[in-house]
Design a protein around this nucleic acid. Sequence first.
DNA 1: AGCTGGTCTGAAAGCGATTTCAGATCTGTC
DNA 2: GACAGATCTGAAATCGCTTTCAGACCAGCT
Lengths: 336, 336
Amino acid sequence: MPNRPGRAPRVTISDVSRAAGVSAATVSRVLNGTARVDAALTDRVHQAVASLGYRPNAAAQGLARGEWGTIGVLVPDLANPYFPDVLKAVSAVARSHGRRMMVMESDEDPAVEHDLVEDLMRCCDGVLLCSPRMPRSELAELAGRKHPMVLFNRIVPGLAVPSISVDFHGGMTQVCGHLAQLGHRRAAYLSGPSASWANAERLRAFEAARAFGLEVEVVECGATSEAGYDAVGAALSLDVTAILGYNDLVALGALARMRELGIAVPAAYSVVGFDDISLERVAHSNLTTVSVPRDELGRRAGELLEQLLVNGDDAEPTYVPMKLQVRDTSGPSPRN
Amino acid sequence: MPNRPGRAPRVTISDVSRAAGVSAATVSRVLNGTARVDAALTDRVHQAVASLGYRPNAAAQGLARGEWGTIGVLVPDLANPYFPDVLKAVSAVARSHGRRMMVMESDEDPAVEHDLVEDLMRCCDGVLLCSPRMPRSELAELAGRKHPMVLFNRIVPGLAVPSISVDFHGGMTQVCGHLAQLGHRRAAYLSGPSASWANAERLRAFEAARAFGLEVEVVECGATSEAGYDAVGAALSLDVTAILGYNDLVALGALARMRELGIAVPAAYSVVGFDDISLERVAHSNLTTVSVPRDELGRRAGELLEQLLVNGDDAEPTYVPMKLQVRDTSGPSPRN
DNA sequence: AGCTGGTCTGAAAGCGATTTCAGATCTGTC
DNA sequence: GACAGATCTGAAATCGCTTTCAGACCAGCT
């Protein structure tokens, strides 16, 4: 990089080679250990590197090696407590394989996702798309570029992209089973982003739920605690005995509103969340929910991508099961 | 980059120039708008780009331009709800200036911070260090490299590095004032990471607090809700009427333990947090705390870095004030 | 018609690494 | 002592893009 005024002069490999009295090739070999080099030269190189404070330029390395040493992650919303946990694990995996992590956020706007992914592909060896909301067609187009890519929490039928997802359908089925067993016959579901696969998977569970006697009404809501707070009114008017949140935030928001209204939980209504975000550790609202180990999920997503980069394996879609966590906000139906 | 088996063949600028029947220089000019180009040629270039699906290689651009178009952010812990909010804002600012964001996490280990920052400097135009725990000497060494760098929540006296920090000292002083006014005379502070500047700043406030009649005992604790939970016992044995947390997580953990022990808050003890993390929105524990607008903080940090990159300005350290949020966990001292 | 000056374009020289290739040196045999 | 082969080293090509530089072209003027 050119020396900018006021910036430290940039030390390049040829500065080092000059100082050590060897060729640039030798410096490269010493630093990367790609070939045997005489011990005396090795020493001189190391000394020159140390005294000049040389650090190889990542762009030049990337260009020459044909690898950036970087993976890219796209998330819908950094502020959603779900993703930092995943990022943390992905970052750790990436680091353990000597890669850096680039992060982009779509801010829940499906329209910008495509561009962001394109940008990521320009500077990352592989990309991890977390819960992408973009339409199937765009996703297919991106997949068609043959750039290593892993899908997280989004399955696109008929698209052979390695993916890892939480078994939302199974999780919600467990929730329904739990409520049915407690004698509930009608429940309201505070629905998440309508375009999202994650929401669709949950909805799918309600058809099966009918089989074991639970009818679920859908109320448009959203993915935030505020949305949950606001949607309670509509839910309560539906003659139900239980409220299911799209996620824990929604359920906690609903719970807060119900507390304000003086509604007894779980005596009058059962409330069930989804995701088991770690807020539970601190919030102590003891929400009944279904959990999934987010760190393990992130780790597996990272490993999947890494494997893809190294072996080019085209793995099968992986589903990670959820686990019902019965706590204090669910109980027998009051109409039993 | 070389074409890997199974990967899409890489389209380069010369492929485009060949297809459009112009020189690579012209393609570059059209794409970057750096010079007037005949309309007919411009069209041909655009068509070639579209039909080939050309995307400039970021590494090559970075190398040629001497800029990566990337900023790097180092955080101690992604799982700490504080940072995602900051990252979100930083990411937005970076994006608005056409830059990407690289994220690294030290996992609260000061020993790895130095290497991570070094790595960031190899591939980012500028770096933002959030609450770095590394010793002053290392920080000084890094600052000496003249690589654009902004410090967030860490002031190093005598080191001329642009920085933006929350006025922790002022915040904690407000907390002490609040408690003193409520008649409290002795309080316990559940102390955070001992090496951290943030903790030192809070401690500093306790000396001043003595002046208005509040004695604060320090209990070693940590930065997590678990640590707060565990430290309650020690705090209660100190003959105090109030407990101050290093942050909200600690305070919430303490609160949870106290609830278990059947201790009335704020009747028997007042509990005060620090940071006002957004968990409050969902946890509804109504913790008294001091707040700081994390998104604004992130935005300003991002802008500071951007300014540094563009103007090379060496701005003065900025302090952002905190604001006392009196809620339900603080009340008059029972010994009044 | 001949110049001057201004636009637009392409050839070529970087940017800073890696890697190939060929030459130099050194071993160990015959 | 000479030769084959193995080691080690440096020169140069390469990665894909930007940017300088100089030439080509055209218009407007004297």
